[in-house]
Design a protein around this nucleic acid. Structure first.
Lengths: 354, 354
DNA sequence: CTGTTAGCGCGTTCAT
DNA sequence: ATGAACGCGCTAACAG
């Protein structure tokens, strides 16, 4: 019932092998026969059997992109950019030629799902895997991921890290593009300090995530550099990377220390929740309390007042990861590149009152 | 070099078929042998060969979710919700058992890529396909998509539409969950009219998209109902569904008619751009100009003033689509369900001045 | 409950 | 430049 390569061969009056050669375009084929074959393909509306093809060739053209939260533009932007580089423009026929195809896998930030998807991609003999965003720092999980990635690499899968720190053993990774979260976090807090703030609350992301830790370390480095120490734990509240969490954490922060003059949030989305909490309390931004975010997502410039934040070149990084995954671009020296984070000063931060 | 099912069978001292049976869990197997087999699997670190498995079984456990723009939370929320229902919790081992696996495919809103991905999923013998968001109205493309979906359905793939209108021939579709974009658009404009607005500009989405057309029709229906006609085209500017486009279109709108007292945007993201354009012009929201969006994305409640918009239950719809795709939920009568849109009145709309 | 036997549809040697 | 034959790794009958 479903038309196979043999059917096409029969109609084109050639051998199955020839059809295969035409379709893959790897071997020389006479122009006339190629023509006949292609017409037969169209006539019969033939679609290659992917599993059969992958089985015989021991490879596939799938490239998996793992993201922690697909509803978060932070990941969407990177994944979309990567996919733009990978997918190619298509040939307009919808025939799905030889180009690679990117698929996005949403781990929800959980270690189990991350491993499950890696196994799936291993099963599918994926051509490449791109892991985006921060990693969970649980040692057992990191070891499991490293082992899995090593196996993928052994099987010929190109592994790329985007916005994620290198592995302890990074040899199985083609390239690791790490964001300078620590540096960005430090500069952001330095900005606040330079405005005169001393009592700064920090709404952190989930514990045990590299992104959370690095941003927080940057913040604390800056504080320490000017001699503000001892209150770190009291002025830090952890939560997840969403608006709601930002709201709740800020409420808690203001309860613990009503005297804070600035709130630094784990990212822009969290900052949005923080601003809501501050306003609901009847305070103004930035007159009463300054607020800062991280990432510089598209909406950040449009909120009122515009959000001071740290810009991460998400699109560029994702695109580069895509090129690395397809081998279009040479890996950086040592397989590791650090991507700079740029401070964006806007209206949500100002000197403290008095 | 790579370990196969036969290797596992040898080590467990059973036949390959038995190994297959315990892995798929479809046939009865003695507890003791199952135990042996599973240990052998772990010992050898065996990973099923997906292509071989799919080839032999003529099906796969992949479920494709097509989205127009993965960087847009509108799609991210739906895709994430669908995937939550599809993916199952995983078994914690990362072994990737029998459950279905959702993969997200980013079409970028282009017809070619949409067809390319459908072909890919057809190749992979996908278990189901979920198409999210509005469709392009080009007749040729619609015919091509319909034909492709019919073929997928023939091959046993379950096709679900989420946030997309039913096909002309909807028989190959398990279920179409359509948003009431027209009703939502109408109620939104009725709200503005009831506040006293008469000069309302409309920043529309891309032409030739069902979502764009339906929302716009709802708006015009409401205008027509109170006898405001004749100026539709002049007070409508089309653009893409992003912030930048909303900004530019609003600038153009204000150029054409500086007297407008309200701007209705194609969606919340576009509305964000519109507010920026209005503010840059030195006008206040809502005192000088009211602004309204559509979708009620998470950030909309946090912008200042909070955005009046139309709430679409994106998460719920996506989750339902996921259940429909996996067969966990029975399709609605006739395979078509309309999902209600709820007006959310907030601070960005107010009576016009004077 | 378990082993045996055939393919699934294609890519890839080898020939020619 | 093309054809013939083999096998990729697994599942699905069919026995037993």
């Amino acid at each position: 019932m479903t038309v196979t390569l043999a059917d096409v061969a029969a109609r084109a009056r050639v051998s199955p092998a020839t059809v295969s050669r035409v379709l893959n375009g790897n071997y020389p084929v006479a122009a006339s026969t190629r023509e006949r074959v292609l017409r037969a393909v169209d006539d019969l509306d033939y679609v290659l059997n992917g599993p059969a093809s992958s089985l015989a060739a021991a490879t596939s053209d799938l490239i998996g992109i793992l993201v922690n939260d697909i509803a978060d533009p932070f990941f969407g932007i990177m994944a979309g950019a990567a996919q733009t580089e990978i997918g190619g423009p298509g040939d307009g026929s919808g025939r799905a030629g030889g180009e690679k195809l990117a698929i996005v896998c949403n781990t929800g930030g959980t270690p189990e799902r991350e491993l499950t998807y890696l196994t799936l991609l291993q099963r599918q003999r994926a051509a490449a895997v791109v892991l985006t965003g921060g990693a969970v720092e649980d040692p057992a999980h990191q070891a499991a991921v490293s082992a899995k990635l090593a196996k993928l690499a052994d099987a010929g899968t190109r592994v790329v890290l985007c916005g994620r720190p290198p592995l302890a053993d990074n040899t199985s990774v083609v390239a690791a593009l790490a964001f300078d979260n620590r540096g960005g976090g430090r500069r952001l807090t330095e900005h606040l300090l330079s405005l005169g703030h001393r009592d700064i609350g920090y709404v952190a992301g989930p514990v045990e995530r590299t992104t959370t830790r690095h941003r927080l370390e940057g913040h604390r480095d800056a504080m320490k550099a000017v001699g503000i120490v001892g209150d770190e734990d009291r002025l830090t509240v952890h939560g997840s990377y969403d608006r709601r969490s930002g709201y709740d954490a800020t409420v808690e922060l203001l309860r613990r220390e009503p005297g804070i003059t600035a709130v630094v949030a784990a990212n822009d989305t969290v900052a949005l929740g923080a601003t809501a909490a501050i306003r609901d309390r009847g305070l103004r931004i930035p007159e009463d309390i300054s607020v800062a975010g991280f990432d510089d997502l598209p909406f950040s410039v449009d909120v009122v007042p515009a959000l001071t934040t740290v810009r991460l070149p998400l699109f560029e990084a994702g695109a580069r990861a895509g090129r690395l995954a397809t081998g279009k671009e040479a890996p950086p020296p040592g397989g590791i590149a650090t991507i700079a984070a740029e401070l964006m000063v806007r209206g949500s931060t100002a000197p403290p009152r008095g």
